[in-house]
């Protein structure tokens, strides 16, 4: 690579263009959306309470790592969604307001912010991370490593409300990545939960799916315990894909489709068939 950045032959110019793309500012619109989603999710998950005052614009922008301009746009969008009210003057500021719509309606509105392509990509990313985590955990697990995962699954199965279930669902995958002894995979799982937290509330609302998710997670633990690395990966991927598949079906307004695994998830061949009875027994 030429240190002066002057383009020379075609190959190097190509590299230069790619580098410029890498270092180009992130799309500002995407940043606004990210901030809207994050604050909106925090409100939906109850992390920010009704009537709570948000930090000042400068402080909040600093915490979120965005410019104040971006933050203002995001706050405007949140005001339009009715999630934030801004009062001027003494004692003024931005306050969390929960609209009167039932929570599920608001969550569905939040889901509508995602395109199906974005959801599919989110699912691909999550499946890649959790699948790899399960595979490595199976290779690197000792007796005792699985206690947190087992505890989380039992709490998940008994979760009284979707928000609690969603937090435990996320914690399971963070713990799985930690069992893989990978700090990077763990950080990826934590970052993914920022997006997934609110969305998963929508699918965990259904007790049947909550039961399925719990069973699938128990099967992942069994595979990890058996040091069956490929089976653990396939099970973790299937679990993630089924939940995201349901989200996509919800987004498309065809929830009925989500009750069966999609055909492409049945392509694990013997691996898949072999684990059938085990998964079913649990």
């Amino acid at each position: 690579m030429r240190p002066n950045g002057r383009p020379d032959d075609g190959g190097a110019a190509g590299t230069g263009a790619a580098r410029r793309a890498v270092f180009a500012p992130v799309d500002t619109r995407a940043r606004v959306d990210t901030v809207v989603r994050r604050i909106g999710d925090a409100i939906e998950l109850g992390l920010l309470a009704d009537g709570e005052q948000l930090p000042g614009e400068t402080e909040l922008a600093g915490q979120l790592g965005v410019s104040t301009v971006t933050l203002r746009e995001a706050l405007m969008a949140l005001r339009q969604q009715g999630l934030v009210t801004t009062r001027r003057g003494r004692g003024g500021g931005s306050f969390v307001t929960l609209p009167d719509d039932p929570p599920e309606e608001r969550l569905r509105a939040r889901l509508a912010d995602w395109s199906t392509e974005e959801l599919r990509d989110l699912g691909d990313h999550w499946a890649a991370v959790s699948g790899a985590a399960a595979l490595l955990a199976a290779r690197r697990t000792q007796p005792g490593d699985l206690r947190p995962l087992t505890r989380t699954v039992e709490e998940l199965a008994a979760a009284g409300d979707p928000a609690t279930g969603s937090r435990l669902y996320g914690r399971f995958h963070v713990e799985l990545a930690a069992a893989a002894q990978s700090a990077r995979l763990t950080r990826e799982e934590i970052a993914l939960q920022t997006d997934l937290g609110a969305l998963l509330c929508l699918v965990l609302d259904d007790p049947v799916h909550l039961g399925n998710v719990s069973d699938r997670h128990r099967a992942v633990i069994s595979a990890v315990q058996d040091e069956a690395d490929e089976r653990a990966r396939a099970l973790a991927e299937t679990c993630v894909r089924e939940s995201v598949g349901r989200l996509i079906a919800l987004r498309l307004g065809t929830p009925g489709r989500a009750t069966e695994p999609r055909p492409e998830e049945d392509t694990h061949g013997q691996e898949h068939r072999a684990r059938g009875p085990r998964g079913g027994r649990r």
């Binding site: 007796p143 490593d145 699985l146 713990e175 930690a178 069992a179």
Partner: peptide, 11 residues
Amino acid sequence: MGRSTGLAGPA
């Protein structure tokens, strides 16, 4: 895993 992986054994 964070919560259970220790240098010390269960006993």
